[in-house]
Nucleic acid binder design. Structure first.
Length: 658
RNA sequence: GGGGGUAUAGCUCAGCGGUAGAGCGGACGACUCAUAAUCGUUUGGUCGCAGGUUCGAACCCUGCUUCCCCCA
């Protein structure tokens, strides 16, 4: 039996899941489901990377042991994949003994083979980035030896003799054209390997960073996170069944990764495996990024698309369909909600869903919902059969080359052909003249639909289940051959499979329409610096309030509309290219919020971190510089000075203010 | 500074030596079984710029430029 082993990167446990994570995992899932459909034995692995400084820092900030912290956040990814109906076979966490054990075994083995040596290094170390900087980087980042961001360190470390595998690696890449895909990425790596390859530092002294896997030969050190993380791809297999299990899957192993981590997968990883006595994986597939307004998606730009929100609004299957359909392998794609809605409407609602709906109605009206026996059929029907069979073959070709977007387009062509066929034959007219002919038409339309549904089932498994019910079929009817639709089955209730969605573009017009709140909020960056009268004006929603009549007194009920709460600032950073805005992540005790505040001219980000502040909690979210701001902080301003409001004594974060 | 990718219709992309393509969008028409759907017709491009090779270049070569990635 053919096999297929696919992995996603293990995601950093501290990261909040975003579109990129959802995309990679969805692609891996869809590829796995296709291979299953084609009869492959499959293994699909994903997981979380839980070691390293960032997890440690996050735990410290919360004042909890790092292991506890990791336990608390690790389920976030698992829950998301469950919600997204992802069919991974296993979920590995790098803090699990089954993983750490293998990492130590491999380290020990490489060490004993004389492939690890110790050396000392000195230089400036950037704390936030966990790495040493070159002189030039120091200069570029504007650091001096006294900068708080860097410390001068001299330390001994362990190095893996990666350099000695350079020639072997070049040869391997050249001899295996499909090892790195797409082709452009392969050339990139080969270009990189023209320069001498260095050795790889694989240790971190515990004095500096202790959250990691101990080096078995020197317990004063922990293992470098990448070395640790990469081994997940084999640790699960080795733990499960030793070399036998590994040998079963490894020859058919594929790593699906983002282009940003290609270097470690194409250079570190094969050489590590080689040193440990294993073969490189069969292939690396590097995909592009989802760009938003052509900018890289990043937390600091605040343009992080939250997959959960979009899924709730548009449905999981439609969302996955869009992701798979709209990115071509290897290239970056622009994400826009508009493009997504258009894609879902035209492909899924209009072409695919509506085909089922119109056929179902005809079937019920003229055949009491029972799938008719097809007649012999003529040229048109022969053409449909030929197209169906061609589509089966082409889709499989595309899938085996990881070209899922092309595969989906192929299926949609088949669906469009079926809609056209109905216009050509007009079965609603045949209902009055020739029921046999109508039956032949309906059977052919339904057979195309069944075939298309089968070929889409890896992408929209939930909806396919629904549509099978509507047609009175089940999973066994998802056969990959023309003609498998059994006449005589009785259809179930009709339902709209994919509803159409309207996309409302947020235009300037609309912004002005909702003037009372919107205008006020939109000016928040300026306003916050002069925030005194803000809450009242906004909560009341009264433009008049801003005009400040002499006796603009309000009742207690007006004040009660404003929810003021105590928040703790967890993170703060400047919004790039602005001199007034800070982006804050605050805790309200039970939830986290992102707030953009116009206080950068008065406060350094560090001054606010850890402080308790007062925020308006029930303010409508608004985007400032493309960053969502959910709430605003209170500050007093006088004579060009500004002071952020803070409670006089210690109170619980999230406490209500009245 | 070096390496690599990318640039084709309003949008998303395919084509990679032989008369510029698809889907979406726009316009017009047809139909009415259907989710303002579907079907047909149509609109629409000095293929980033400038040179070169060739009988012939979107495609090969050289040099620029845009955006992006990697390395230093």
């Amino acid at each position: 039996m053919s096999r297929f082993y696919i992995t996603t990167p293990i995601y950093y446990v501290n990261d909040e899941a975003h579109l990129g994570h959802a995309y990679t995992t969805t692609m891996a899932d869809v590829l796995t489901r296709y291979h299953r459909l084609y009869g492959y034995e499959t293994f699909f692995l994903t997981g979380t990377d839980e070691h390293g400084q960032k997890a440690q820092q996050a735990a410290d900030k919360k004042g909890m042991p790092v292991q506890d912290y990791v336990e608390s956040v690790a389920p976030r990814f698992q829950d998301l994949w469950k919600k997204m109906n992802i069919s991974n076979d296993d979920f590995v966490r790098t803090t699990e003994p089954r993983h750490t054990k293998v990492v130590q075994d491999v380290l020990q083995r490489i060490y004993e083979a004389g492939l690890i040596y110790s050396d000392s290094y000195e230089g400036f170390y950037e704390v936030s980035d966990e790495r040493f900087l070159t002189d030039k980087e120091m200069e570029e980042k504007g650091y001096t030896k006294d900068s708080p961001e860097v410390v001068f360190l001299q330390e001994k470390n362990y190095f893996f003799k990666m350099s000695q595998y350079q020639d072997w690696l070049i040869q391997h890449i050249e001899a295996n054209p499909n090892f790195i895909r797409p082709e452009g990425r392969r050339r990139e790596i080969l270009g990189f390997l023209k320069q001498p390859l260095g050795d790889l530092c694989i240790s971190r002294p515990k004095s500096r960073m202790s959250w990691g896997i101990d080096l078995p030969f020197d317990t004063d050190y922990v293992c470098y996170v990448w070395f640790d993380a990469l081994l997940n791809y084999i640790s699960v297999l080795l733990d499960k069944g030793g070399d036998e299990e590994l040998n079963k899957w490894w020859p058919e192993s594929h790593h699906l990764i983002g282009k940003d981590i290609l270097m470690v997968h194409a250079v570190y990883w094969p050489t590590m495996l080689k040193a440990a006595g294993y073969e490189p994986p069969k292939s690396l597939i590097a995909h592009g990024w989802w760009l938003i307004d052509s900018a890289k998606m990043s937390k600091s730009k605040g343009n992080v698309i939250k997959p959960l929100e979009l899924m709730d609004r548009y449905g999981i299957d439609a969302f996955k369909y869009f992701l798979v359909r709209d990115m071509s392998l290897g290239l970056d794609s622009n994400f826009s909600e508009k493009a997504m809605v258009e894609r879902m409407n035209s492909d899924l609602a209009n072409d695919f869903g509506n085909l089922l709906n119109r056929t179902h109605k005809l079937l019920v009206k003229s055949f009491d919902g029972v799938v008719p026996e097809p007649g012999a059929g003529g040229e048109l029907e022969a053409e449909l059969k030929a197209l169906g069979e061609k589509t089966l073959a082409t889709v499989k070709e595309h899938v085996l080359e990881f070209k899922l977007h092309a595969a989906l387009e192929e299926v949609l062509q088949l669906v469009r052909r079926a809609n056209k066929y109905m216009e050509q034959t007009e079965p609603w007219k045949l209902a009055k003249t020739d029921l046999n002919a109508m039956g032949t038409v309906l059977w052919h339309v339904l057979e195309i639909f069944r075939l298309a549904a089968t070929l889409l089932s890896p992408v929209i498994p939930g909806k396919v289940e629904n549509l099978l019910t509507q047609l009175g079929l089940d999973q066994n009817n998802l056969e990959l051959r023309w003609g498998a639709l059994p006449p005589g089955t009785r259809a179930g209730e009709a339902q709209v499979l994919f509803p159409r969605h309207e996309y409302k573009e947020v235009t300037d017009m609309e912004n002005t329409e909702t003037k009372p709140e919107q205008t006020a909020v939109a000016e928040a960056p300026k306003a916050e610096a002069t925030a005194e009268s803000k809450p009242e004006a906004q909560a009341a929603g009264q433009p008049e309030a801003a005009e400040a009549e002499p006796d603009n007194l309000i009742g207690i009920e007006d004040f009660a509309k404003v929810q003021l709460r105590v928040a703790e600032v967890l993170e703060a950073e400047r919004v790039p290219k602005t001199d007034k805005l800070l982006r804050l992540i605050v805790s309200l005790g039970d939830e986290k919020r992102q707030i953009v505040a116009g206080v950068a001219a008065y406060y350094e980000p560090e001054q606010l971190i850890g402080k308790q502040i007062v925020v308006v909690a029930n303010l409508k979210p608004v985007k400032l510089r493309g960053i969502e701001s959910h709430g605003m902080l209170l500050a007093a301003k006088s004579e060009g000075k500004l002071s952020v409001m803070t409670p006089l004594g210690e109170v619980a974060t999230g406490a209500a203010i009245s």
